[in-house]
Simulated assay, not measured.
Amino acid sequence: MIFDTHLHLIDRKRLSYPWLADVPDLNRDWSYADYEATARRIGITDVLHMEVDVAEADIEAETTFVAELMQRPCSLIRGAIAAARPESAGFAAWLERVDRRVVKGVRRVLHVVPDAVSQTALFRQNIAGLGAAGLPFDIVMLARQLPLARALVDACPDTVFVLDHCGVPDIAGGGFDTWAAQITELARRPNLYMKLSGVTAYTGGNWTLQTLRPWVDHILHQFGPDRIVWGSDSPVCTLHSNLGEWVASSHALLAALSEDDRNSLLHGNAQRIWKTAAQ
């Protein structure tokens, strides 16, 4: 079984995605039905929808969209990692009214705002509030921003964090050493988990299994299989691979783990972190 903790769905008739104009290869609809057809063939049994940086006015509409998908017969979707604005004074009120049957976690895209945003007192206060509410926060930052991620995690020790996409390493540029040092430091924070998700997108396109292995081996060594979850990052993973290739590569890269450790990484950890019931 595989729990995909990072699925993006795009419905341009219903929601607005301003950033898509700059990424023509992704600028189309990506439907649940198309994803589900492939996911069931390759062993994906459970899914969390990851917010897609919709226009701010559409944030709550995106959550409603996910809630409707959850109600489909035999739906794979177990909830949403919802968009929010922790830098806003209205965040606490949003957290009070949010539908916890749908919202299992929160993310704010942090590489599209000034670095200072995640370091403000209000942002940290609101992220600490997620910990009190029992909701994890996904961190998505570029590799150069990983010291900022470390500062945020340290400021909110009672909040569970998940670092998306292995910290967005510069695989194409060969930026291993600096990234690896930051990952080693981050792994010392017990409230931080790692997400093995869609790193083929950062390869520049000319990749093989051996291209990915040093990066994946490093997170396995530093975090261990009990602090890593898996995600597809579909459809972003399609920039330099496809969903089936990423699943097959993941299985190969994790083959040396015991069966129990693979099961934890690919499924069990996600159920525990996001408190989703077995289906």
Rank of each mutant, 00 (worst) to 15 (best):
W215M: 08
Q279N: 13
A143H: 12
E96A: 15
V247L: 05
E36M: 01
A181M: 09
D260R: 15
L9N: 04
Q182Y: 05
T63G: 09
A201M: 15
P235N: 09
H240Y: 14
V236P: 03
T203W: 11
H165N: 08
L130M: 08
N126D: 03
W94F: 15
H165Q: 10
D261R: 07
V168G: 00
A33K: 14
M141A: 15
R40T: 02
A21E: 13
E245Y: 00
S264L: 15
L212V: 08
A133W: 04
Q271D: 00
P86S: 10
A67C: 03
S234L: 11
A67S: 15
D260A: 15
S197Y: 08
A132C: 04
R272V: 02
L148F: 01
R12T: 09
R12A: 03
R108M: 04
V103E: 04
T208A: 10
G268P: 00
W246D: 03
T238M: 09
T159E: 01
A132S: 12
F91A: 13
C166P: 00
M141N: 04
Q222N: 13
S75Q: 09
V247K: 07
S232K: 12
V102Q: 04
M50F: 02
I183L: 05
P157F: 01
R213E: 07
A278P: 05
L130R: 09
G79M: 12
K13D: 12
Q71E: 14
